[in-house]
């Protein structure tokens, strides 16, 4: 396991989403989808919700049972980490059910073009928080 407990997962992956949400220009590109997406992680367990329904901002919440998601993506936290490092074959992960998508697939497809810069952003973020060790773990 890359992340030893939910707290570490929240700090690293959650922290990354929060950083992305603070980059106004980038957040706007992401939020154009106006989607509410929930990532349900296991090993360790944590769910992270990205609320982009206003079309401008990304609101990050944790284990949020109030908001109703349009798309849910279930995966192990290790798979998520590998994905944001740009090391995961997304097609294979979905085919082999390492990543399970629930909800309209076209909404997820629309995301793909804006993802490209995030892989480097994640690596930069890991360095910034002193977790370079995780770059090689993925």
């Amino acid at each position: 396991m890359v992340f030893r407990d939910p707290e570490e997962l929240k700090q690293v992956l959650g922290g990354f989403f929060e950083k992305v949400s603070q980059d106004k220009e980038f957040a706007k590109k992401f939020a154009q989808s106006k989607i509410l997406i929930r990532f349900n992680y296991s090993e360790p367990e944590l769910s992270i919700t990205l609320d982009m329904t206003d079309g401008e901002n990304i609101i990050v919440t944790y284990n949020d049972k109030e908001k109703r998601s349009e798309v849910d993506m279930d995966m192990k936290a290790d798979i998520a980490h590998k994905f944001w490092l740009g090391k995961l074959n997304l097609t294979m992960a979905i085919t082999r059910k390492m990543m399970i998508v629930r909800g309209p697939v076209p909404r997820v497809l629309a995301f793909i073009p804006v993802l490209a810069p995030t892989y480097q952003m994640y690596k930069d973020y890991l360095k910034e928080i002193g977790r370079e060790d995780l770059i090689e773990v993925g």
Binding site: L90, I94, T95, V101, V105, P106, L109
Partner: peptide, 22 residues
């Protein structure tokens, strides 16, 4: 099957964005 849903939605070009990125 999510891949079939992607094909229905965007045809064979559904893989284009990912192909360009990777």
């Amino acid at each position: 099957n999510p891949t079939m849903a992607a094909l229905k939605d965007s045809g064979s070009n559904s893989s284009y964005d990912l192909s360009l990125q990777t």
